[in-house]
Amino acid sequence: MSLNIVTLINALPGAFAQGLIWGIMAIGVYITFRILDIADLTVDGSLCTGGAVCIMMMLNGQNVWVSLLVATLAGMLTGLVTGFFHTFMGIPAILAGILTQLSLWSVNLKIMGKANQAINVDKYDLLVSLRFVKNVAFYKNTLFVVALFILVVVLVLYWFFGTELGSSIRATGCNGNMARAQGINTDFNKVLGLMISNGLVALSGALLSQYQGFADINMGRGAIVIGLAAVIIGEALFKKLFHNFGFKLLGIAIGSILYYLVYQTVIWLGVDTDLLKLLSALVVAVFLGLPHLKSKYFSKPVRRGGNQDA
């Protein structure tokens, strides 16, 4: 088998577009994983919820923008459920997410009526699509449209996490004891953070299902791993460069794009596609484990306690 570089180059814009769409999802994961310090597994379900709601609404004649909005709201609802399990019922966050994710399997099937719902790009006015990646006006180009989405999302989040409420969410994730001592309702903030995160994930799912032309019950499987991979890549590459919160979020989106470019290249290299999820998981495991391994086996002796004069 010969490697044809033209095939790869032709595939790259598509990979780029997918990376951008998943970038919105990765930003959602960043909010729970890094800001709230919760590994939220709801996303594997809420991504599909977003896609299912969006496609079903459009098939029923709704406007694409309304569909996207409702899909986002549906995603926020899934975050609310996980948040309720976690805070009100005291279930560990990771389990709460798994419970919601499992229940969403049924919910998503009920929304779609079957496991897969296709939407025809010629009959419906889609915002993004596989077809809009090449040979279209730039403002219709999926790359441009999704990049714009990301820009708006980043700007809104940058503003929000700079407000009093947003700051209190950051404090909640960083140090719950401190937050409560300062009068912050940490339970409420966790629920709110989970809602925002899953809203973004569902928005990403809604765009993704338009892009690929269908919503599928399996579309969210392993989404959390892709989200984490994007977060890790983005952070690793831009740690020194980006200190501003907004740029950090952009870095995550870029991380997602790189993930899909590498993914596409690996496929092009002829690696068995059945193995891709295994590879993704292993790569993420290694990177998540690095800080621990580093401190355990490669730590340099440092003076503990830092600067002693208070």
Partner: peptide, 11 residues
Amino acid sequence: RRGKSRGLRWG
């Protein structure tokens, strides 16, 4: 802001 409501004013 301890004991005050936290809204959407700048932090």
